[in-house]
Simulated scan of single mutants.
Amino acid sequence: MLEMSSEALAVVQRSHTMVVRAESWLNGELVADDIPIASGGEERDRSLAVPERATLTVPRRDRGTTWDPIDPDHPLAAYGQQLRISYGVGVGGSVEWIDRGWFLITESQADGDTVSIQCEGLLSLIEEARFVAPFQPSGTLASTVRSLVEPALTVEIDGALVDRAVPVGMQWDEDRLAAVHELLDAWPAVARVTEDGFLRVEPLVDTGTPVLSLTDGTGGTVVRWNSANSRAGAFTVVVARGEDADGNPIQGVAYDRDDSSPLRDGGGFNPLPVPHVFQSPLLTTVAQCRAAAQATLTRLRRSASRRLAVTLMPHPGLVPGDVVSVTGAGMTDVPCMIETMSLPYSPGEMQLTVRTIDV
């Protein structure tokens, strides 16, 4: 959960006064603050390569300022301008601001009396920056991810991760973001853009202490099952393959042994193994293959977990990956992890998709 005071946490769980503001930055310099936001919203989905999206509507003219992006240096133009968006909550006669993060303007257009703005998370900078020539990494996993991402994003490496050397002779030809994901899968690690605009690389964690209790029927909260499911792409075991220093093929295997999983190995889904196989030259020992296979199983198993759709009053502290306790739809205090969310920037309802987890 994003940083909030106890007073603000108490306020947002009931009807509250809210306001949203944005600052525009270009080349590391503030070019406009207190941009007037009339409406809009933010969506986040952990399954996407760039998880964050935001849409804003701004008056074309407000308090003597023209917000029509008529030139490349305008604060709302789409030539590198980044918006820092904050959500304000009225607390005791003042406003407490919660930073929702940084967003790259990808499109802006004036129409009548308003300007519509489309934004994406900062990983879009990495997604669009394809390699001009083949990239051959050297050094370690940490130094390589920095070489792939910086200076577009500053990288923070969690101290719990164990760094190691990158094998000689590797090469990526075109897709920079795919190279980042291949490196993270082999480490194994995950990455997220923080509300401060850094790329934080950290171990995969699929548990946690609930930061909020959601109860069906309380404060307008509605909980219901999401019944969508499919056999397409399902698997019961992950196989990670690599090559040792002598050029011999190696592999590590991780089976779904969770008795509560509908895709457990040898269970009702299929009595025979159904593998998901991936290969990476970054894997040079059996231990590395096993760790990568287990992390991949944990990450991809999210799609098979039972899911709930939750509607509630806007809560500006929540982000995907937060654990919440859910009561409703036949469950009591069941821990769930947020996978997708939609947060309005004007009065309305917030939507969450959460999945049940084990703690």
Rank of each mutant, 00 (worst) to 15 (best):
D158Y: 04
V324W: 06
H181G: 01
D244P: 00
R53K: 09
V211P: 02
V149G: 03
A8V: 11
P347H: 09
R355K: 09
Q82G: 03
E120W: 05
A152Q: 07
E174I: 03
P137V: 04
A179V: 09
L308V: 12
P320M: 07
L308H: 03
R301W: 01
S6K: 12
S6N: 04
P316S: 10
I98K: 14
G93H: 14
S346Y: 10
P320S: 01
A254H: 10
P51Y: 10
V222D: 07
Q82F: 01
P281S: 09
V50T: 08
G169I: 00
G112L: 05
S260Q: 14
T209A: 12
W97A: 13
W187Y: 11
A54R: 02
S346H: 13
Q81R: 07
A191C: 11
C289H: 10
G64T: 05
E182T: 10
E156R: 14
R61F: 08
G330A: 04
V12S: 04
G330N: 12
S6L: 12
C336A: 14
E150P: 04
V334Y: 12
E202M: 13
P316F: 09
R60T: 05
T298V: 12
G90W: 06
F135G: 03
G159V: 05
G92R: 15
I157N: 08
H276V: 06
I37G: 11
P275E: 15
Y255M: 11
G208D: 00
D246L: 03
T144S: 14
A304R: 01
E29K: 10
P75Y: 02
R84L: 08
Y345Q: 04
G121K: 09
T114L: 15
Y255V: 10
E182D: 15
L184I: 03
G112H: 05
D62T: 02
Y255S: 15
G90M: 03
L318V: 13
L56Q: 07
P69V: 00
D71L: 02
Q82S: 09
R176G: 03
V168N: 05
R257I: 15
G169M: 03
V253G: 12
G268E: 15
T356W: 07
V180Q: 06
Q288V: 00
R84Y: 07
G242L: 13
R21I: 07
F235C: 02
V50P: 06
E150M: 08
W225L: 13
T65P: 01
V50W: 09
Y79L: 04
P167V: 07
G330M: 02
T144Y: 08
R164W: 05
P188L: 00
I70M: 01
P51S: 04
M313Y: 05
V326L: 11
I85M: 01
R61A: 14
A54P: 06
V223M: 02
S5I: 09
S47T: 01
V180T: 05
V205M: 01
Y87A: 03
Q351G: 02
R257T: 15
R21E: 08
D258S: 08
M18S: 10
T17D: 11
G64A: 01
S260I: 06
S147H: 02
L104M: 15
T284R: 14
E174L: 03
E96L: 14
R61E: 15
T114G: 10
V190E: 11
R231H: 13
V50K: 05
Q82M: 12
D111Q: 15
M350H: 02
R130F: 12
S39P: 04
L204R: 02
L122Q: 15
V326E: 04
